[in-house]
């Protein structure tokens, strides 16, 4: 990520938009009535969180920890969040696949994706 020269506000905006995306996902997860829409909301929320993790890796004015001769200190982002996000993406993928599998099985039983019609459990 290139260093932002216009000042801090643009950068804060990125964080805020990212959290907004996360809340869009959360809203869909809680309010939507269709199984597939719920799954898509989960994917949105998960990806927003991963994006947030990547953005956090940017430190203003960060440079190499180790200097070589004849080479000026250049900007660098924190590499650790990228490694962690890979793990997090895989976890999100596995949950998504499991959700889709369960949703398909539910479709075979009920012939619908509408959760207002899927209610065996009460009380």
């Amino acid at each position: 990520m290139k260093k932002n020269k216009k000042g801090g506000w643009n950068f804060v905006l990125v964080y805020i938009l990212c959290l907004c995306l996360c809340f869009v996902g959360l809203y869909g997860l809680v309010m939507k009535k269709n199984l597939l829409k719920i799954i898509i909301s989960f994917i949105i929320m998960d990806n927003a969180l991963n994006l947030f993790f990547i953005i956090v890796g940017y430190k203003k004015g960060g440079s190499f920890p180790v200097f070589l001769k004849n080479r000026p200190a250049d900007n660098i982002v924190d590499p650790l969040p990228q490694a962690l996000v890979l793990t997090s993406i895989v976890i999100g993928l596995s949950i998504t696949i499991l959700m889709v599998a369960v949703a398909l099985r539910l479709y075979h039983r009920y012939k619908t994706f509408d959760i207002t019609k899927i209610k065996e459990l009460r009380g």
Binding site: F42, M99, R105, I118, K119, E120, L121
Partner: peptide, 21 residues
């Protein structure tokens, strides 16, 4: 994989994914 089990599992997954998020 009966009706109730699948429904309970889906509910559990939705709440669980909010919590892990």
């Amino acid at each position: 994989t009966q009706k109730e089990e699948l429904e309970a599992s889906f509910k559990y997954m939705v709440l669980g994914s909010i919590s892990t998020g």
